[in-house]
C-alpha cells in the first residue's frame, strides 16, 4: 500500500487528492476520474462559462415560465432551499450579484445607492422553484452555486474513490476536506485548521477517519478601510457585511453539510452564529474578532471522541 498524491487546480483553488493503493496505475486512473468529476461540476456551475447551467438559469431571468433543470441541479436547488430555510434566509444563493457593489480589491466601499439598486434583485423567496422549473422573475436576478458546489465536489470526488474501492485517502479542495478513509493502519488523518489571523500556524488540529471538514473565514476576501475590516460575509437582506466571527470550521459526515454549516454560522454574526452551531450539534471550532476560540473542537482534537 502506497500513498499517492495528485495535485490539481479547480474552483479557483489549489487542490489535492491523496489516496492509498497497491498499484500506481490504478491510483492514477481513479484520481483522474475523481478530478474529472470536480472539473465537470466546476464547468457545469461556473458563472463565467456561457454553456454552464448557472449561465442558462441566469440568462432566463425575467422569463416568467422559467427553465427546466436536470436532476442534479434540481437536487442542488432543493439543498439551497433547505439552507435558506435553516438559516432564516441568510444562506441565499441569489445574493451573488452583491459582487457588483462590493469589489474587495478596490479599497472603496459601495454607496448605499449601489446596494439599494441590487437588493430588489436578491431573495430566494422571490424565486419560484418548483422542480424541475426554476424561475427568476426579474431580469438581472442571478443564482450562484459557488457557495456550496466546491464542498459538494469534494464529497463527489471522495465518493468516486470509495466506489472504486479506495479505502484510505482524502480530497482537499482549497481547504475543504473530505476523507475517503483512514490510513491503512487505521490511523486518522491529522488535519490542521487555519488560524484566521496567522496563516502559518494552525489554530488547531483535528483527527479525522471519515467525514468532511469545511471552513469559512473573514480572511478569504476582505478590505480594511479606516481600520475597519469589511469581509465578503454579506447579509443578503441588507447587502452589508455581517459582524461575523473571524472563522468557523465545521465537521459533518458530508463535506457539503459542513460547508453550509460554517457559512451559515459566519452569516449569523458572532453571537447568533455560536448559538446556532451549539444548537446544530456538529463538532466545530470558531474564533471571534478578539481571537477567542469557541467550540467542541478546541479541546477535543479527535473527532471520534466527540
Amino acid at each position: 500500500m502506497e500513498l499517492y498524491t495528485f495535485e490539481f487546480k479547480a474552483m479557483g483553488s489549489p487542490c489535492e487528492l491523496r489516496l492509498y493503493s497497491n498499484e500506481k496505475a490504478f491510483a492514477q486512473e481513479i484520481a483522474d476520474e475523481a478530478i474529472v468529476e470536480v472539473h465537470r461540476l466546476e464547468k457545469k456551475y461556473s458563472r463565467y462559462r456561457d454553456d454552464s447551467v448557472t449561465s442558462e438559469i441566469n440568462n432566463s431571468a425575467g422569463n416568467k415560465n422559467g427553465i427546466g433543470v436536470d436532476a442534479e441541479t434540481a437536487l442542488l436547488l432543493n439543498y439551497a432551499q433547505v439552507g435558506y430555510e435553516q438559516s432564516d434566509g441568510l444562506f441565499d444563493i441569489s445574493s451573488g450579484i452583491l459582487r457588483k457593489a462590493w469589489d474587495f480589491r478596490s479599497q472603496k466601499l459601495p454607496s448605499q445607492n449601489d446596494i439599494d439598486a441590487l437588493l430588489p434583485l436578491i431573495g430566494w423567496d422571490k424565486i419560484r422553484w418548483k422542480a424541475p422549473h426554476i424561475c427568476l422573475p426579474v431580469e438581472g436576478m442571478e443564482l450562484d452555486f459557488g457557495g456550496y458546489v466546491k464542498e459538494y465536489a469534494a464529497d463527489v470526488a471522495a465518493n468516486v474513490c470509495r466506489n472504486a474501492n479506495i479505502q484510505g485517502g482524502l480530497v482537499n479542495l482549497g481547504g475543504d476536506i473530505c476523507i475517503i478513509g483512514p490510513h491503512p493502519n487505521g490511523d486518522a488523518w491529522k488535519v490542521g485548521i487555519r488560524h484566521p489571523r496567522n496563516p502559518s500556524v494552525p489554530m488547531s488540529f483535528v483527527m479525522l477517519e471519515k467525514g468532511g471538514l469545511a471552513s469559512s473565514g473573514d480572511y478569504e476576501r476582505f478590505m480594511i478601510i479606516d481600520g475597519v475590516r469589511y469581509a465578503h460575509i454579506l447579509n443578503p437582506k441588507t447587502g452589508w457585511p455581517v459582524n461575523s466571527l473571524a472563522s468557523t470550521s465545521v465537521y459533518a459526515e458530508q463535506c457539503v453539510v459542513a460547508g453550509t454549516s460554517s457559512t451559515i454560522a459566519m452569516l449569523k454574526g458572532e453571537r447568533a452564529g455560536i448559538a446556532w452551531l451549539e444548537e446544530l450539534g456538529l463538532p466545530y471550532i470558531s474564533m471571534n474578532q478578539q481571537q477567542k476560540i469557541f467550540g467542541t473542537l478546541k479541546r477535543i482534537k479527535d473527532i471520534s471522541q466527540v
Binding site: A71, E72, L75, L76, N78, G83, Q86, D155, V257, E279
Partner: peptide, 26 residues
C-alpha cells in the same frame, strides 16, 4: 456542543437534502 442522542432539526434537514444529491449517495 452535542445534545443527547437526538439530532437537531436543522442538521437533519441539511443532511437529508445532502444525502439526496447525486454522487453523494451514488
Amino acid at each position: 456542543g452535542k445534545k443527547s442522542s437526538s439530532i437537531s432539526p436543522a442538521l437533519a434537514a441539511l443532511t437529508s437534502a445532502a444525502m439526496a444529491l447525486p454522487g453523494i449517495s451514488s
